[in-house]
């Protein structure tokens, strides 16, 4: 059933170098719309690096060379679209909850404001809608003017998700979004991800294999810059084709 879903990203022959070090080797994959795609693999395998190529965050690092193409809806994101527009379409949630040191309201309104929305009524609406979608509205609606750093880590992370949603992206990249959170907050974020995939395409990097198996539709396994195996999550976890994948998910290394 999920196979029929539209393809959002097409990655062709992607290579990435940090100076002389090759961090990604010849990656080819399709990422599907309205699905959760999980990237798993041991530390340093390139999964986060790959995630960051999708909204061109690697551009910020000196000395990065990227070869090959990534197409979003058929458009090459490295040559045919302005990076600002790309990042508006492809939001990102980071490993550590990282709200700006300002109020919850200003955090969520930050994106719309930098894109030129100034009307108070419109901003109010966006902030409320985004916080509701991020399932944190009820918990913070009485303290929107409070500093975002004053709420709990799990709430901060959902405020960060709301901040990403506020610019109306199509895609949300999540870089180990629950690794700094307790189990209950983790559960809330996972439920939220499942809820959000109806409207957005979600790509999540995770260290936690159970998490990948719980929430993702497809899983890609990375090892030292190679994508070893990519397929439907059920198949990857129950019936991996590659020996290395099996070794990793059964906990033989990693």
């Amino acid at each position: 059933m999920s196979l029929q879903k539209k393809c959002k990203f097409q990655v062709n022959d992607l290579n990435l170098f940090y100076g002389n070090f090759q961090a990604l080797k010849n990656i080819n994959m399709d990422i599907h719309e309205n699905e959760i795609t999980a990237f798993i693999g041991p530390s340093g395998c390139g999964k986060s690096t790959f995630l960051k190529t999708i909204n061109r965050m690697n551009d910020l690092i000196d000395g990065v060379i990227i070869e090959g193409t990534i197409k979003m809806d058929g458009v090459d994101i490295y040559s045919d679209i302005d990076v600002i527009k790309l990042r508006k379409k492809v939001g990102m949630v980071f490993q550590q909850p990282n709200p700006f040191p300002m109020s919850i309201y200003d955090n969520v309104a930050y994106g719309p404001r930098v894109h030129g929305i100034k009307k108070k009524a419109q901003l109010d609406e966006i902030v409320e809608e985004s916080l509701k979608r991020a399932a944190v509205w009820d918990e913070v609606k009485d303290r929107l003017k409070k500093n975002a750093l004053s709420v709990s880590g799990g709430q901060q992370q959902r405020v960060c998700i709301a901040r990403a949603l506020a610019v109306e992206p199509d895609v949300i990249l999540m870089d180990e979004p629950t690794s700094a959170l307790d189990p209950i907050s983790t559960m809330k974020i996972e439920d939220l991800a499942l809820e959000l995939k109806n409207k957005y395409t979600i790509i999540i990097v995770t260290h936690n294999m159970q998490q990948a198996s719980r929430i993702s539709d497809r899983t890609a396994f990375f090892l030292t810059g190679d994508m070893i195996e990519y397929g439907e999550t059920e198949q990857i976890f129950n019936n991996p084709k590659e020996k290395k994948t099996e070794d990793y998910i059964t906990g033989r290394f990693g």
């Binding site: 909204n55 965050m57 910020l60 600002i84 527009k85 990042r87 508006k88 939001g91 990102m92 980071f94 550590q96 990282n98 700006f100 930050y110 994106g111 404001r113 930098v114 894109h115 960060c160 901040r163 990403a164 610019v167």
Partner: peptide, 20 residues
């Protein structure tokens, strides 16, 4: 991470510097 999340929201470098 302030810089990254601001840029990740589609802010320009100058906006990131002046606003965050």
């Amino acid at each position: 991470t302030y810089r990254e999340s601001s840029l990740g929201l589609g802010a320009t470098k100058l906006q990131t510097i002046t606003k965050v």
